[in-house]
Every structure is written in structure tokens, then in C-alpha cells.
């Protein structure tokens, strides 16, 4: 199972080490609303889960995504 950092780096076309714990839509200009849709689809495919509207709207940082994944039993 890929790590959250590797999924994000692939979608955002950034090196894995550019995705630090503080990474967010504010700190990464590549992470815009269109890339966010790609990211959600990639996360659902990578981890075999479905994200609801509230979760999708809240997942605007590495930490927020990791928290949602943990709640769903996935280790980011």
C-alpha cells in the first residue's frame, strides 16, 4: 500500500520530501481545487475507501488527510 506522501507527490508532481507534515493547500501552490479532485480519486483508489463530502472539504492539508485516513483504519 503506498504511503500518503507518495500518493500526494505523484498527484501534485512534487518530490516526496516536499510533502512535509505542514504541507497544505496554502503552502503548495500546485495543490489547487482541480488537483484536489485528482487527489481524492487517487486516495480512494489507493486505499480502497470512499470519502464523503464533509471529509473531502476538510482534507486541505497533509495532517487533515492523515487524520481522516486513520479514522478509516488506514495508516498514512
Amino acid at each position: 500500500m503506498p504511503t500518503l506522501r507518495s500518493v500526494m507527490s505523484q498527484v501534485l508532481r512534487l518530490p516526496v520530501d516536499a510533502i512535509d507534515d505542514d504541507a497544505s493547500m496554502r503552502t503548495l501552490p500546485q495543490w489547487d481545487s482541480l488537483k484536489h479532485m485528482d487527489l481524492i480519486v487517487s486516495l480512494e483508489e489507493a486505499y480502497g475507501l470512499t470519502l464523503d463530502g464533509d471529509e473531502i472539504a476538510a482534507m486541505t492539508s497533509y495532517g487533515a488527510i492523515a487524520a481522516v485516513l486513520r479514522r478509516k483504519g488506514v495508516t498514512p
Binding site: S33, H36, M37
Partner: peptide, 9 residues
């Protein structure tokens, strides 16, 4: 503007 705004912005 995206057609679909999943971020609800």
C-alpha cells in the same frame, strides 16, 4: 471556476 467544487469554497 471549477465545474465541481468539492472543497465547497
Amino acid at each position: 471556476a471549477p465545474l465541481v467544487d468539492l472543497l465547497r469554497r
